[in-house]
Structure formats: C-alpha cells, structure tokens
Design a binder for these strands. Structure first.
Lengths: 170, 170
DNA sequence: TATATATGTCAATATGGCTGACGTAAAAAG
DNA sequence: CTTTTTACGTCAGCCATATTGACATATATA
C-alpha cells in the first residue's frame, strides 16, 4: 500500500488518487445504468422498476419487507412502483404459506423476459470490462467495492469466500 | 481469465459472477453516496448540488458548457441547481476573458468549505477500502471501472498512464 | 384478549430530471 | 457591417421518485 499513503498518515489519500476513485465510480456507474434506463423507458418504467425487477428475480418469493431492506426506500415509494409492476403483470404476489400476512413476490414470464433483456445488456458491459482487465484486476475490483460498503451491506456477501478478509478464513 | 468464461464462450459470464458485479456496484454506490447526501440535506441541497460543487472544485474556472457535458443533464436542470449555489454564495461566476459570453465558475470560500466537508467523508471511506484491499486490488479496481465506462468517458482518464491498455504504451 | 407485525393506501411535499419556447449578448462568418 | 451561430439564461409545465405522517386491515404472537 506504499503508494496510497502520504507521509506519516496512511489514511490520508493524495488528492489525485481520491479524485480519481470518486470519478471512476461516478462515470462508470453513470454509464452502467444508462442503457437499462433507455430500455426501461420503452415500457414507461424507470430505474426504480429495474431495481425491483432485479431483486425479485434474484430472490424469488422474497417478501415486501426484505425488498424494503435492500432498497432502503419507504414502503410508500415502493408501493407505487411495485403495484404498477403487479398491475401490468411483470410480478405476481401470493400470500406466504407460513405467515399469511406476507406477500411473496415472483417474476411472471413477462417479468422474466424484461429481466433478461436488462441483464443481457449489463452482462455484455461487465464481460467486456472483465475480459480487458484480466482475472487479477477483477479480484481487486471486487475486493475494493466490497470494502467500500457499509458493514451492513458486506454481510450480504458473507457466503463468498474470496471476499472475506484473509484473517477470517480457516 | 479462466474463471470468467463459461464453456466455449468467454464473453458469457456465469450468472453468479454477473449478479455479484451488479450487486457490488449497486450497494457500494449506494453506501458511497449516503453520507454526503446526509450532509447536503443540512444545507437544503441534494446530490445534484454535490456534483456541481465537486466538478467546479475539480476544474476551477470551468464553463457552464463543460459542466453540462460532464453531467449530461439539460441546461434547465443545471440552472436550477447552479443559480441556487450562486445565490447562496457557494459558487461565483465571472465572464470569460477570451470569450465574454462564458461564465467561468469557481467555488467561493464558503463553497470550498462545503466541498472539503463532503470530500473528507468520502476520503475516509475510500482510504479504508484501499488500505484493507491492498495496492494490487486498488489497481484492479481502477482498471475494471475504467473499462466499464463508455469510450467517451474513458477519454477523461487519458492522462493516467496506469489506466491505458498495455498495447498503447510506448 | 391485547399487542405487535406485514402490508397497503391516502395526502401532501420536495428534488431533480425532461421538453419546448423565447431572450440576450457576444463571437464568428459572410 | 450584417447575418448567423454560440453561450447562457429563464419561464412554464410535466414526470419519476423520493419523503413524512396518518390511518386501515389482516394475521401472528404474547
């Protein structure tokens, strides 16, 4: 880490390194979301719909509370988007079997199609970046992003061995 | 790159790798912007103000057009935010010397103070992630984000030797 | 039975995008 | 010198997505 510290304080990043990281994050995130946003607009949807489609696709039968936890928005905000997706048959709800207060969320066939369309686009972008950067760079990319997250968010990746601090691996 | 390909097609990422990248980006970006958003709300500002403060701080005396190019929003959208920052004395404008139609933008002392407050926060987060991840991981992080960007965005980093494809280095 | 939880909904408000139309001053081109 | 283009601003209206607060319903749990 010699080139990250400046003088005596290893926690103080040089201005250029700091700015570079901030800008890489800003521009890459901007470009990463631009194309899906385009696709979504054909359906009259926005980025909020994308996030719901994505996470419901990722965790079929997830509950509304779990989704709220992930998205960190209010239930009123989610409600507008989610009920729209249900009304237009991209997502279906059914009562939980254990706890019938819950509404378990799943993508319909129509929802899965949209999910694929959105994912394929980003798959190409990520695959391209990974291919150009190489395997070692990919590992570093993952490790830094992992450690940029809050403690809380990192827990979500607990099952991925490669991301855990070396000291914690048995 | 052996572990990025799946079977015969090296451009096809395995589902888990793809999802992992998407989620690392989503959660790290979410957490990366959450604290500045908090600080900004004390001033009655939002993320849009942050971006303006950031880029004007980065490139003092930049013009409105340059800012519009970077942010990729309409001048009407920028106007609301920018004129608020000027009115409240965070940014000052002065006519260009060569071209007097231009308004060159600079942070005032007040603006610089807010900029520092916002940057210090993110500096700590990045420094922490870099320190934990190590120098090699940092290099990989940069390379992958660089290649996630559009061609257009990558030009912005042309001056940074370490990010250029090896083949282009003399 | 009383309370807590999961979810939904109504209403009001704010931010930050957008389009379209129009205006002014200054530079550049004819 | 006139015309056109450029840099910038502004008014008006629209839309998506977030917020808070209050209230309702069904179901689980103490």
């Amino acid at each position: 880490m010699a080139d990250v510290k400046s003088g005596a304080n290893p926690l103080f990043l040089r201005e250029e390194e700091l700015r570079q990281a901030m800008e890489l994050l800003f521009f890459s995130y901007r470009d990463f979301t631009a194309e899906p946003d385009q696709i979504l607009s054909h359906y009259g949807f926005g980025r909020a719909h994308h996030r719901v489609i994505y996470f419901v696709g990722r965790h079929p039968s997830m509950t509304v509370s779990e989704l709220l936890d992930i998205l960190r928005i209010t239930k009123q905000s989610l409600s507008r988007v989610l009920s729209q997706l249900v009304r237009e048959d991209f997502i279906e709800q059914k009562p939980g079997t254990e706890d019938r207060r819950q509404r378990l969320l799943k993508l319909t066939e129509k929802g899965k199609k949209l999910e694929s369309e959105l994912i394929e686009n980003q798959r190409r972008r990520i695959a391209r970046a990974y291919r150009i950067a190489g395997a070692d760079a990919v590992a570093g990319f993952r490790t830094v992003l992992y450690n940029l997250m809050d403690e809380d968010g990192r827990k979500r990746f607990d099952h991925i061995e490669a991301l855990q601090p070396a000291i914690a691996r048995r």
